[in-house]
Nucleic acid binder design. Structure first.
Lengths: 220, 220
DNA sequence: GCCGACCTGAAGCCAACCTGAAGCCACCTG
DNA sequence: CAGGTGGCTTCAGGTTGGCTTCAGGTCGGC
């Protein structure tokens, strides 16, 4: 589960990111509205936490632009209660929820979870690749109808491969999407997870393309 | 994969078209807004690169008109940063992304690919040369429908030849593109790979032009 | 016929990759 | 609070297969 925080107050951004990571989410942070729009537009995030006062492009416009482009990623807006902006306006631009600073950590967490849950109920597509069926909303994987239990990271890696089934996905790309983009570790970690997935899903499920990356068998 | 460039600065248009063609896209160029609207409206393009300052009809209106007609082809807008237009306005009219001149080639390429990928399917076109089909995204090659497995280097060499099918490509050019730019070894290595490719693809697939280089048979 | 350009099979080397094991940490449970 | 559990990450040894070099042969032009 991958979140994007668009917030220019660096201290706040850092503390939010820290807390959310502790809950097990992968979190990326950007400090500029335009940058935020591009990242959010990639379609790789499950939720965007969006400040309103931002350099580059303000939060209302970022959100409006996302919706105009047909992107329906859940957006949780943040703002200082200084009267200049109000809640109704935020919701009008297509935000899913709205939080006024200062807010407590617990409240934020509750809202984030509520949004993600709501999203889970709404139909996220179930990916079908070969004999696998990957339910993105429920985080469930079945192989030939039999459920396979995966850990969070295993699921995230498989999801990335499935989203681009048949294509080669490089280790760097998997790292970028599944781990925080600030992750500094060895990218041997990807190999470890691919190995685990093969053990659970069958060795033929994921093909190695030496020097290029991995490919989820789109036939098989 | 077919792109339309609507741009009245002929030099820029030509250079963009050249670069995109080199990546394997089919590219058409028009220099007038109205003409662009008609072509884009045909529904045969996978992406439109749209300048804002245009004779005939400006980019905002072209994009707005497309959307009003229910056409949701991805639109990447270009503009000079002269303050008269701003990014948010472009996105409001339904553009999917926006680039401020001057921009680097790499950035443009990244945005184009991001947009195409978001629109589903692979961003990279499948090259077809004679009886060969070369899927750049999947790193996969078929000859008359039968899959041929190539190594990373073999694939890269073939890709270079295919991107300029019918043309003679010198050994030096292949070396430069496929190997590290600082490669110091013998350029006999290219011969070795061509040899391997011929073994796998048939001797007639790659022609030698003595003293000049190699050519991928565009008929065959 | 000579010479340079090109072809291609063989073989060593090394990077990429795989995977089992173990440490660490957060969380749960009694 | 102690002990257990499970997931994440690191590490290291082993294996594989691709990359490159080399050398001997073939081909084509002059």
């Amino acid at each position: 589960m991958r979140l994007l925080i668009v917030e220019d107050e660096k201290r706040l951004a850092r503390s939010l990111a820290g807390g959310l990571r502790a809950e097990g989410y992968a979190v990326d942070v950007v400090h500029d509205g335009l940058e935020g729009l591009h990242r959010a537009g990639e379609g790789t995030y499950d939720l965007v936490i969006l400040d309103i006062m931002l350099p580059g492009m303000n939060g209302y416009r970022v959100c409006g632009a996302l919706r105009a482009a047909g992107n329906d990623v859940p957006v949780l807006m943040l703002t200082a209660k200084d009267g200049e902006y109000d809640e109704a306006e935020g919701l009008d631009t297509g935000a899913d929820d709205y939080l006024t600073k200062p807010f407590s950590y617990v409240v934020l967490m509750a809202r984030v979870k509520a949004l993600l849950r709501r999203r889970g109920r709404s139909a996220l597509p179930v990916l079908r690749v070969g004999e696998l069926s990957i339910d993105q909303g429920a985080h469930r994987v079945e192989r030939d109808g039999a459920e396979v239990t995966l850990t969070a990271k295993e699921f995230a890696v498989l999801e990335q491969l499935a989203l681009r089934a048949g294509e080669v996905v490089s280790k760097a790309e998997i790292l970028e999407h599944v781990w925080d983009f600030a992750y500094e570790g060895d990218n041997n970690i990807v190999e470890v997870y691919v190995s685990a997935l093969r053990r659970k899903l069958g060795a033929a499920a994921i093909q190695t393309v030496r020097g290029a990356g991995y490919r989820l068998a789109s036939d098989a």
